[in-house]
Simulated assay, not measured.
Amino acid sequence: MPLATTRRAGLVDQVIDQLRTAVTQGEWPIGERIPTEAELVDQLGVGRNTVREAVRALAHTGLLEVRQGDGTYVRATSEVSGAIRRLCGSELREVLQVRRTLEVEGARLAAAERTEEDVAGLWAVLSRRETELREGRWEDFARTDAEFHCAVVRAGHNRLLTELYRGLTEVITASVAATSSITPGAEHAPEIGHEGLARAIADRDADRAAAEACGFLDELLERIESA
């Protein structure tokens, strides 16, 4: 009996891993309905109970959301993100305060630890961000802006901080969209740009990088309080 239980648990874990990978690698984007239980059974070659347990486990962590009579939808890109969304909801002020806590130290580490490849990546993302801003493609702009901040933290090469920050992906993107809507328009591009932060990281100036990140987020907090 223990051996059978171990085999069953291992099979469920394998299905969980496959479903998680489909979400984290973007095969199933946020808000999209995943294949039906019957389709997953056919694709994975396992029983309905195994699929059901795996989906239930990922719904419990916040990665998936089961809507009775409608299907199962992707709710977050990681379990960390799902937990954060349940805990803090969408309170913009709280999200920005947490961002400031992580991003200031993330910028400092990035300036100290970044590689030339990291710097090139930052400038590439900023170029794409500026084009989307100029063309008024706000949804794309919000995603790319969040991508830039993730790239900054990643450039610090601290795996724990990077994973913690990655868990904020959805709420960060939502906060970018919300703060952009306060003062939208291409005429605000210099005001809300991140070129100073990228230059500080490229120059390996840790104090300036931290100040750039802190000043930007402090400005956003002031902006939402006066909006």
Rank of each mutant, 00 (worst) to 15 (best):
residue 139 E to C: 00
residue 123 W to F: 06
residue 111 A to D: 13
residue 152 V to P: 03
residue 127 S to F: 07
residue 97 Q to T: 06
residue 98 V to K: 06
residue 165 Y to T: 13
residue 182 I to M: 04
residue 97 Q to F: 04
residue 130 E to Q: 06
residue 121 G to W: 04
residue 123 W to N: 05
residue 115 T to R: 03
residue 174 A to H: 06
residue 132 E to I: 00
residue 108 R to S: 14
residue 122 L to Y: 09
residue 134 R to Y: 02
residue 129 R to Y: 06
residue 137 R to D: 11
residue 185 G to V: 04
residue 118 D to S: 12
residue 111 A to S: 14
residue 177 A to T: 01
residue 104 V to C: 06
residue 176 V to L: 04
residue 98 V to S: 00
residue 167 G to T: 12
residue 116 E to V: 12
residue 156 G to P: 03
residue 135 E to C: 12
residue 171 V to L: 11
residue 158 N to K: 07
residue 159 R to A: 15
residue 143 R to D: 07
residue 144 T to F: 05
residue 100 R to C: 11
residue 119 V to S: 11
residue 115 T to E: 12
residue 118 D to A: 08
residue 98 V to P: 00
residue 142 A to Q: 00
residue 120 A to G: 10
residue 142 A to W: 02
residue 126 L to W: 01
residue 120 A to F: 00
residue 141 F to E: 13
residue 136 G to N: 05
residue 176 V to S: 02
residue 146 A to H: 01
residue 101 T to V: 12
residue 131 T to K: 12
residue 178 A to E: 13
residue 151 A to V: 07
residue 128 R to M: 08
residue 162 T to M: 05
residue 119 V to Q: 11
residue 124 A to E: 11
residue 146 A to K: 08
residue 150 C to K: 14
residue 118 D to E: 04
residue 160 L to C: 05
residue 158 N to F: 07
residue 102 L to S: 04
residue 141 F to W: 14
residue 151 A to Y: 01
residue 126 L to V: 13
residue 161 L to N: 02
residue 99 R to K: 15
residue 130 E to G: 01
residue 98 V to L: 14
residue 115 T to G: 08
residue 152 V to L: 09
residue 120 A to D: 15
residue 140 D to C: 00
residue 149 H to G: 02
residue 99 R to L: 14
residue 175 S to V: 02
residue 100 R to E: 15
residue 175 S to N: 02
residue 113 E to K: 14
residue 162 T to E: 15
residue 169 T to S: 10
residue 184 P to L: 01
residue 137 R to M: 10
residue 162 T to I: 07
residue 142 A to S: 10
residue 174 A to D: 14
residue 181 S to A: 15
residue 134 R to L: 09
residue 106 G to T: 12
residue 145 D to M: 05
residue 133 L to P: 01
residue 151 A to W: 00
residue 168 L to M: 15
residue 98 V to G: 02
residue 145 D to T: 15
residue 142 A to T: 03
residue 172 I to E: 08
residue 183 T to V: 11
residue 167 G to W: 12
residue 155 A to W: 04
residue 114 R to T: 15
residue 119 V to E: 14
residue 183 T to H: 04
residue 97 Q to S: 14
residue 128 R to V: 14
residue 159 R to N: 08
residue 169 T to M: 02
residue 176 V to C: 05
residue 160 L to R: 10
residue 116 E to D: 15
residue 136 G to D: 05
residue 98 V to W: 10
residue 120 A to M: 07
residue 116 E to F: 06
residue 127 S to M: 10
residue 119 V to R: 14
residue 136 G to F: 09
residue 162 T to Y: 09
residue 154 R to Y: 08
residue 152 V to A: 08
residue 108 R to W: 12
residue 146 A to R: 09
residue 183 T to M: 05
